[in-house]
Design a protein around this nucleic acid. Structure first.
Length: 523
RNA sequence: GGCGGUGUAGCUCAGAUGGCAGAGCAAGCGGCUCAUAAUCGCUGUGUCGCCGGUUCGAGUCCGGCCACCGCUACCA
């Protein structure tokens, strides 16, 4: 039975250009989307940008640009990741530009207000203008901002607060019971710990002044701007026309069966606590799955634009190709704990896996079909099992389930490794059956047979046997490559298509073998 | 400080319910020649962070210690 599958990435704030970390999340979501789609489920994949963040305003100021202009420029860079990463998102929402967004956020606000969960409260704290944030006494260094060394000024204002405390027990049980699933378990435990420590109401608006006039005004209170997190989290439903509770909203959210959010560990609390509470308040269904990834480091250092350690994914793709970058992100990033990216590792991974193992496998199989069968895929007699092919055929049979199980556990590494069992078994199988020897036996016998016109029944029996064995072996190998094309589709869509093309005869013959991946020269 | 996690072969990491230490990569040796100098096989004397305990038996359970990391309320 098809289950509507809705998957989202977070919407990054666009104060700069996208880096490899953004690519990771996009690619992970993309794999889940493609996998579900391949399984026949209806899929909706959403990405987007958070335009309303104060950081964007500050970045624009720093560049001397109008905020909207900077936001437009940077958001375009994020949206254009689609092609280089082969990310198949169906929709891309921009919180400052999308006409569906603001009315949806307002509706969400009003729904929570109607539930009695929004109230005004006087708030005061020590605010650092440089950081654009409040500090507690404990966080300060001798009363000074640790970042700027300045004394934060006391700011007092009337803000809107959300009654988060009211949902503490409900949230705890939802997470504990798994009805709100959080993967991996470490993150789930963190959330439980956080909730159990006690939830306090949090501020969901700020003054126009502090927001620099950027963002969505509070309905009915134009002096206040909706807290950017409220605004940003709303994107997951506003993009579905929650404003009108339209058809998309009903299909993918209200009546959908899987609502999956991907996010980095840094924003877990907002997604696993605030967001579900907002939805509970508004009387809407919660997400079903919250899948949390860790961060990447580059050359052993945190990704940081200011430190110049941000890697531009588009650059990487230009140099090495879409699928090598995807492959690295998928099979070298563990579920828990950070992964360190280096160009050397990308190259090593590409050469070893994609060129040597996979590319060469397809190449040698297609080449053999050409060399021994003039490019015509053999059509072995039914029931003529290929000798010693059991391990390979078993591997082929098991992959789909293994991939599905791994992806369900949000474990891309195990999923890619599962696919690779076929590659390994196929390469092993070639060496085991030695098609070149079968071809020689066949050729010798045939030559003899031609000369003697079948005088020797024993030789012609050998001929037929070698011939049938070769047919069967090539057939098994070709089918294995086709299995690979199918199973790799969610991970390496471009490569999968090229493998399929290499293994699909036209006018009865396979196309000439062409290497899938050039080997990247090391340095 | 509190809660949680990690520490296993040169590197990256697997190792439900305790039962003779594993995989991949790298390295060395050997084989094959269909293939992108690719591929296949063989080769690991590792204090399983340290110290103690439970057990016939512990990487696996318990206690303590060390190191690193995550979370600890508005850092989009």
């Amino acid at each position: 039975m098809p289950t509507p599958f809705y998957v989202t990435t977070t919407i990054p704030y666009v104060n700069g250009r996208p880096h490899l970390g953004h690519a990771l999340e996009l690619v992970q979501a993309d794999v889940l989307a493609r996998h579900r789609r391949q399984g026949g489920d209806p899929v909706r994949f959403l990405s987007g940008t958070d335009d309303n963040s104060l950081k964007n305003v500050l970045a624009a100021q720093a560049e001397g640009l109008p905020t909207q202009q900077l936001v437009d420029r940077n958001a375009a860079a994020f949206e254009s990741l689609r092609k280089p990463l082969a990310a198949c998102f169906d929709d891309f929402i921009r919180t400052s530009r999308d006409s569906r967004h603001r009315p949806g956020v307002e509706r969400l606000w009003r729904a929570c207000a109607a539930a009695g969960d929004l109230y005004r409260r006087h708030y005061q704290g020590l605010y650092c203008v440089g950081c654009e944030r409040f500090f507690t006494e404990a966080e300060l260094d001798a009363g000074r901002c640790p970042e700027h060394g300045t004394r934060p000024e006391p700011v007092a204002e009337q803000n809107w607060f959300f009654r988060l405390s009211r949902y503490q027990d409900q949230l705890y049980h939802l997470v504990q019971s798994g009805r709100l699933r959080i993967e991996p378990a470490v993150r789930r435990n963190e959330v439980l710990g956080f909730i159990a420590a006690g939830l306090e109401d949090f501020s969901v608006s700020r003054s126009q002044e502090r927001a620099r006039g950027w963002g969505i005004p509070v309905p009915g209170d134009p002096d206040q701007v909706i807290y950017v997190w409220w605004d940003a989290l709303g994107n997951y439903v506003t993009a579905l026309d929650y404003a009108n509770r339209g058809a998309d909203y009903r299909r993918w959210w209200a009546d959908g069966s899987r609502r999956v959010h991907l996010l980095g560990k840094g924003v877990l609390r907002f997604h696993a606590v605030y967001w579900p509470a907002m939805l509970l308040s508004a009387g809407e269904p919660l997400p079903t799955d919250i899948l949390v990834h860790d961060y990447l480091t580059v050359d052993g250092k945190k990704i940081s634009k200011s430190a110049g350690t941000a890697v531009d994914p588009v650059d990487l793709v230009d140099r090495f190709g879409t699928d090598p970058v995807r492959w690295w992100l998928l099979c070298e990033v563990p579920r828990v704990s950070e992964a360190d990216f280096t160009v050397e590792r990308l190259i090593a991974r590409t050469n070893r896996d994609l060129a040597d193992d996979l590319g060469n496998l397809v190449n040698r199989v297609v080449s053999m079909v050409h060399r021994y069968r003039a490019g015509r895929p053999p059509d072995p007699a039914p029931g003529a099992a290929a000798a010693d092919a059991e391990r390979l055929t078993t591997a082929c049979q098991l992959v789909p389930d293994r991939v599905a199980a791994a992806l369900d556990a949000f474990d891309f590494r195990t999923a890619t490794a599962a696919v690779w069992t076929v590659v390994a078994e196929a390469n092993r199988y070639v060496d085991q059956v030695r098609p070149w020897q079968l071809a020689r036996a066949e050729g010798d016998a045939r030559a003899d047979g031609d000369a003697r016109a079948g005088d020797d029944p024993a030789r012609s029996t050998g001929d037929r046997q070698a011939s049938a064995q070769l047919d069967a072996a090539l057939d098994v190998l070709l089918r294995s490559c086709q299995t690979l094309a199918e199973q790799l589709q969610p991970f390496l869509p471009g490569t999968a298509a090229r493998i399929a093309a290499q293994c699909t005869p036209s006018a009865g013959r396979l196309p000439s073998p062409r290497p899938l991946f050039p080997k990247v020269p090391g340095w």
